[in-house]
């Protein structure tokens, strides 16, 4: 059974359609990335899956459970890190994590809170009020709150926004370990280097999923530009196409001594995603 199944999920706010029939499925132990521009519907989709939002249509199942009807059972098994910090600013980092951990009757809570303070690099500031923290530190506390009860499915809405590269790398190491232990991670992100670390990604545009694939699979939809430099004519020729077209493009050149350099440039994931979004807008 998949951890997450979404079929034809829609959400309307008056005339605005935030989700237009989203379909996707996420397997157990998978790190699934949700990629898309602001306002694409990423947060709406995550809220629909954690039962914080009533969809206008379609179905969603998390571990076979309906996020609204079965929310009492489901909420014991999921972790959620919202896009905003969603912390009690007058309380300390430790108090915040302890409060959400205690809600789940987490065994060995004190030990787990200490571990998470260490993991978030907050041990030295664990007893300081959160309102004295930087944005990145608040994100770390917020992530700790989502992980403290060791949930089976973890929803993270832009978890590494405002987090420095070193700590982000540590976060992703932990995400991979959690997935290795069987947890499913559903992560929204703007960052393409993060999307590359996911097992699969879905590209969301204006409430509609326009592509779902592995990051490599999405990359392969991009174009490759081949530049051939002739020394005798001092000219460059650029040939665009998909990787499988390149052999045909090179064939007329053979291996002429005049060809002194061949440059290959492949679209970045960001360029491919933007191109897919543009295509969807035109089509």
């Amino acid at each position: 059974m998949n951890s997450i199944e979404v079929s034809g999920l829609t959400k309307r706010y008056g005339r605005v359609e935030a989700l237009e029939g989203a379909d996707l499925s996420v397997g157990r132990g998978e790190i699934f990335g949700l990629v898309g521009p602001n306002g694409a519907g990423k947060t709406t989709l995550i809220k629909g899956l954690v039962g914080a939002l009533r969809p206008s249509g379609g179905t969603a199942r998390v571990m076979g459970l309906n996020p609204l009807r079965d929310r009492a059972v489901l909420r014991q098994r999921i972790g959620y890190m919202p896009q905003s910090a969603a912390l009690y600013e007058d309380l300390s980092a430790r108090d915040n994590v302890r409060f959400f951990g205690a809600a789940h009757r987490t065994p060995d809570l004190k030990k787990k809170v200490d571990e998470l303070m260490h993991f978030s690099d907050l041990s030295g500031r664990a007893d300081d009020p959160v309102h004295t923290f930087s944005g990145g530190m608040k994100r770390r506390v917020s992530l700790a709150c989502a992980l403290v009860h060791r949930p089976e499915v973890i929803f993270l809405d832009e978890p590494t926004a405002a987090v420095d590269p070193q700590l982000r790398s540590r976060f992703w190491k932990t995400f991979r370990e959690l997935a290795g232990d069987g947890a499913t991670l559903f992560i929204s992100t703007h960052l393409m280097d993060e999307a590359m670390l996911c097992d699969r990604i879905a590209i969301l545009r204006k409430g509609r999923i326009i592509a779902t694939d592995t990051p490599q699979g999405v990359l392969e939809q991009g174009r490759t530009r081949l530049t051939v430099v002739h020394d005798d004519t001092d000219t460059k020729e650029t040939i665009g196409g998909h990787p499988e077209d390149l052999a045909a493009a090179l064939r007329p050149y053979g291996l002429q001594p005049g060809v002194t350099a061949i440059g290959v440039e492949t679209d970045s994931l960001e360029a491919v995603v933007l191109s897919l979004i543009e295509k969807a807008e035109v089509g």
Partner: peptide, 14 residues
């Protein structure tokens, strides 16, 4: 406004 209400609900508070 801080989002903690939503977080409480998602953490199982009724």
């Amino acid at each position: 406004t801080m989002g903690t209400m939503e977080r409480m609900f998602v953490n199982g508070f009724r």
